[in-house]
């Protein structure tokens, strides 16, 4: 099961990088979302996949009979997902502002802060 998820994770990372490199800020955002998903899957797989029982205890705190899914990576993932969402939201706002500033989303044509060399 980990193998398949590992492949999917690598695939998502690859597609995300391809999107990020496209030079369009909106595509970068798509890439960012995919990258977060890919890495989250990698973390999940690294924490081992145990199909079945969620990490919930019985009413009196007793452990279930079969092994539970690993709780710690799940907590890390939750944190990572929420943080990723925050970062994505900011990046989205920045994208809108960049469009309002430049009138386009081509990152390579955003050259105010680093203008092309004139003295040459």
């Amino acid at each position: 099961m980990e193998t398949l998820v590992a492949c999917l994770s690598g695939f998502l990372v690859a597609t995300s990088i391809w999107l990020m490199l496209s030079g369009n800020l909106m595509r970068f955002l798509f890439g960012l979302l995919l990258l977060s998903n890919g890495v989250n899957l990698a973390i999940l797989a690294a924490g081992r996949l145990t199909p079945g029982a969620p990490p919930l205890l019985g009413v009196k705190g007793e452990l279930p009979a079969d092994t539970m899914a690993n709780a710690l990576p799940q907590a890390l993932l939750l944190t990572a997902i929420v943080i990723g969402f925050g970062l994505f939201a900011f990046a989205l706002a920045l994208t809108i502002q960049a469009y309002r500033t430049f009138g386009h989303l081509e990152v390579d044509r955003m050259r105010i802060a680093e203008p092309a060399e004139e003295r040459e």
Binding site: E2, T3, G10, F11, V13, I17, G38, V39, A42
Partner: peptide, 17 residues
């Protein structure tokens, strides 16, 4: 480049597991 990074990630996860 994208495929190379993706492949590395896959290998890492596989190795970890």
């Amino acid at each position: 480049v994208a495929l190379a990074v993706g492949l590395c990630v896959t290998v890492m996860v596989l190795s970890v597991t």
